[in-house]
Design a protein around this nucleic acid. Sequence first.
DNA 1: CTGTTAGCGCCTTCAA
DNA 2: TTGAAGGCGCTAACAG
Lengths: 361, 361
Amino acid sequence: MSQASKPRATIRDVARQAGVSIGTASRALNRTGRVSDETIALVAKAARQLGYAPDGVARSMRTRSTGVVGILVSDLSNPLYAAIITAAETAFQAAGYSLLVASTHNRQAKERSLIDIFRGRRVDGLILGACETESADMLSRLAEDIPVVALDRDFGPDCAGVHVDHYNGALKATQYLLNLGHRRIALFTPGAHLRPGRERIAGFRDAYTQMGLTPGSDLVRMERSAMEFAFSEALALLSSAPTAEAPSPTAFICLGTRIMTGVLQAIRHSGRSIPDDVSMVGVGDSDISLLVSPNITTLTWNLGAVGTAAAELLLKQLDAAAPRPAPERVLITTELMLRDSCAPLRAQATKPHRHKNQETQ
Amino acid sequence: MSQASKPRATIRDVARQAGVSIGTASRALNRTGRVSDETIALVAKAARQLGYAPDGVARSMRTRSTGVVGILVSDLSNPLYAAIITAAETAFQAAGYSLLVASTHNRQAKERSLIDIFRGRRVDGLILGACETESADMLSRLAEDIPVVALDRDFGPDCAGVHVDHYNGALKATQYLLNLGHRRIALFTPGAHLRPGRERIAGFRDAYTQMGLTPGSDLVRMERSAMEFAFSEALALLSSAPTAEAPSPTAFICLGTRIMTGVLQAIRHSGRSIPDDVSMVGVGDSDISLLVSPNITTLTWNLGAVGTAAAELLLKQLDAAAPRPAPERVLITTELMLRDSCAPLRAQATKPHRHKNQETQ
DNA sequence: CTGTTAGCGCCTTCAA
DNA sequence: TTGAAGGCGCTAACAG
């Protein structure tokens, strides 16, 4: 077996084989400019014979466009992002673009260096769903001349983006539980300092306020998406000896798949049962909510629509024909899927808890 | 706001600003060849002032290497692939490579065109975990001069790859159920015509054979990963009037997250309960198995290890220093995680079924 | 140690 | 309709 495989055919080879000039070969292959049908056929045949495939890098060099877009998220394996990325990739693929992905693992430094790396690779556009810092300043410095679409991030009015209506989602979920009589509701959400977290806590608080109530400030947990963290925090809330000032929550709102998983296990581990002892509103990123018994009432939105919208927003900016579209925003609405994990407070209070883990008693 | 943003600084600008030639600037920036510390500092300063960032495309043009690798899977949002890709991306990122991803959606045509597109973009390497057809021939035609790592696919001995030991996994799972007294075991697995499916069914059959038994040939379902499909197939097996020749299965082996989800719902929908009525061995791709009650006994392997191994195998081939490593294979072992979803057959036979959906009776 | 030069493969003017 | 030539930004040879 020869060590060095023979170099790939270039347009030069095709031109020679077809007996035409390089320029003509290029025009024939790309169907651009005036070329006779005869030479088109000739060039096509030569290209086929040589197994010619155009070199994307050389083309990018010339056209100043790579046909590649990048997407940055904190964790590719989070079902939320996995679903969004899948939908976006499908849309990009249909439009002839390829997708470069990277996880930032919630590291700000990594995030910045990845943006620089993507810029260096000359991606045509960028979808940003990770940034630890939301500032128009950072955005403009880092992504300058590259079209950007924000994924649930606020980079100011100049940046296009698709945003989920977390505010009304959290509002609805909280109102629902308040109307069931719950007053000690715990809110678990990732992204403390980012748009989703901000919107959710605002909706949560406003639901209380609208009823003339005040939420327990000790019951809001905003941390990055982590199962273990949610587990231990929820367990702490449930297993601490209830005091008059800070009794255990009677309901949980868990707005992240990982977080929901952790809290679910904590509830089970503490010997409580849903919805008899505690109520729960989860999140519909995965189909976990349909598998546990009882099925979990979730706040759900269309992840595919998020990905598709992000791709389309970016494609619109990439369209060289249009001059320069005004930064557009898409709002994705949320829906409260009522299932069996929430019950009126009254019913819960009557039942005593059976603790599975005896050693903590 | 000016319509055209000013063009990015090139190495030419840096050279002029630093008062050196572009060759020297290049050497100074890349720390290659002999350059005085003085000029290095000079060039670095100029680069900083101009906000210079090297153009990856131009560099790729010259060096014949893009620093980009591609990965092809059937569905990016499948937790199995999401986990593998995340691990691989992390490894690639650490090595300075970027990752191009695409879903083939189980379409052979798409698969081939995507390989061509990736080749056109001149990826340095390819991880193939999708291919509908496993043949050394197809591989060599399509991926010719690009290093390839197979992901649970058989492209012949010349192709490096990481492979999961599905054979022994299925063997263990089946033996376990057979030892519990089950004889009518249904096997659900995606990828009928691919390595995982082949290995699994071989292990399944051998477990029977080793005990002098024959598996029910009507109980093997090998289709692509789809929840709805698994649901209806499982329901059909469970709800058809049991006959002497083909009674309903008493145990299910579900080797795909989606499939497991569908079968779980079918079992519940048919009014059966686990493990009293039917036993189940699932798959550990997600943490679903820990959330449903009872917890599901699963066949599990380290998805992160698969992704990392694939990346490392490819990186080894990409290392220009080494001559050309012999095609290497990594075998990932599986583990049967015993939980609460399997019971001896005896206990199951005694309980009559309660059917939820009365209309089918 | 540094400057000059020649392309990498392609597209796109400009002439013919 | 076609051919010739220039250059995208960079690196790697070769001179000095």
